[in-house]
């Protein structure tokens, strides 16, 4: 069954073929045929990132990485190599000589994951093993800041690599410093909740999915740990292409965000449902599909569960900044058409 046939069968909110009560949103469902369940529902999933890793309780990045890499493993028939940038994901998974990775995996530097991955892909081609596919992965710091040059080069050369960024919105591994993916208003170690405009400044930052699209690479997508089916479909789709591909996954960080470990998925869901983190796909530089919001919520719902935004609720000036954040969410909803029933994936 190819992906399009699968979509026709899947009881997503867009195509209610049969009523299964859950299954559209839950990981699995005993009533669904085996081939329509998620990779994560599989009793024999790879568990690419195995137990015993040292990520914090409720780590969204650990979860997102297993979701994505397990899906990529299934999509490539286990013919996969992963290249990892420095960051939490690398540090918590591989304290020498232990590793949590159950796949071929390589780490080099903080800023060069994209370049190393380009090299691995070239090596596979030269060795006559083009079916061995390459994934590069890193945090937002390693992707949107220090690794950005290598990443842009990989895009521009259209190297045969899927790059996955796990966005926890700061440099978490070194103690929560601001990155170019840190949202306005957020308190980090380097943007304390002090002064006239406490927390991270408004009006800056960069949107790497949109920058990736500007390179006109074949496939760009955003995903969230709150929507497993959507995430798996995007990783699977990405593996159907050759050339440079990019997926940006939103992964809450209980430590850095000051949230409860048990709330990780809830918070990721609120980011999507408020419009702050739009889920979409782009082909050849054009948005081709978006995942509609199911039950719209105000940004407050998302912000108030995180201590990094607590100061915004404490003053009138903070309230004004929340209004700005709401305006950003509303603009996303408008620009991406996130409330349209007809929002479909191509």
């Amino acid at each position: 069954m190819n992906r399009h046939e699968k979509l026709m069968e899947l009881p997503t909110q867009r195509q209610p073929v049969k009523f299964y009560q859950t299954g559209t949103f839950t990981v699995g469902n005993r009533l669904l045929p085996e081939n329509l369940r998620s990779v994560q529902a599989d009793i024999g999933r790879t568990n690419s990132l195995n137990s015993g890793h040292r990520a914090c309780q409720g780590c969204g990045e650990a979860l997102g990485a297993r979701y994505a890499i397990d899906a990529a493993m299934r999509a490539t028939d286990n013919q996969l190599v992963a290249v990892n940038a420095t960051g939490c994901l690398e540090v918590f998974s591989t304290p020498y000589p232990e590793t949590s990775w159950q796949i071929p995996w390589i780490h080099s530097l903080f800023g060069n994951a994209a370049a190393v991955a380009s090299g691995v892909a070239a090596a596979q081609r030269v060795r006559g093993r083009p079916h061995v596919r390459v994934v590069a992965q890193g945090g937002d710091g390693g992707t949107t800041d220090i690794g950005f040059g290598c990443l842009s080069g990989m895009f521009e050369r259209n190297d045969d690599v899927l790059y996955i960024c796990y966005d926890n919105e700061a440099y978490m591994n070194t103690g929560v410093q601001r990155s170019s993916a840190t949202p306005p208003g957020a308190r980090t170690a380097t943007t304390p909740a002090l002064g006239r405009e406490p927390g991270n400044v408004s009006g800056t930052g960069k949107n790497v999915p949109l920058i990736a699209m500007a390179h006109r690479i074949p496939y760009v997508a955003t995903a969230s740990v709150a929507n497993l089916h959507d995430l798996e479909l995007k990783v699977t789709t990405a593996m159907e292409f050759h050339g440079a591909r990019y997926i940006h996954i939103h992964v809450p960080c209980p430590l850095g965000w000051g949230s409860l470990p048990a709330d990780t998925i809830r918070i990721a869901r609120l980011a999507v449902e408020s419009g702050l983190f739009p889920l979409f796909e782009a082909r050849d530089g054009h948005v081709s599909a978006r995942t509609p919001i199911r039950r719209k919520v105000a940004v407050d719902e998302y912000l108030k569960l995180q201590k990094r935004f607590a100061h915004l609720f404490a003053s009138p000036a903070g309230r004004e900044r929340i209004a700005l954040i709401q305006a950003t969410a509303d603009r996303n909803i408008e620009e991406f058409g996130l409330l349209e029933d007809e929002a479909t994936r191509g």
Partner: peptide, 17 residues
């Protein structure tokens, strides 16, 4: 009702199906 959610959402693979 065996929706597999717990099995899926554990960041530590600590749920055995």
């Amino acid at each position: 009702f065996e929706c597999d959610n717990c099995y899926g959402v554990c960041p530590d693979n600590s749920v055995i199906k």
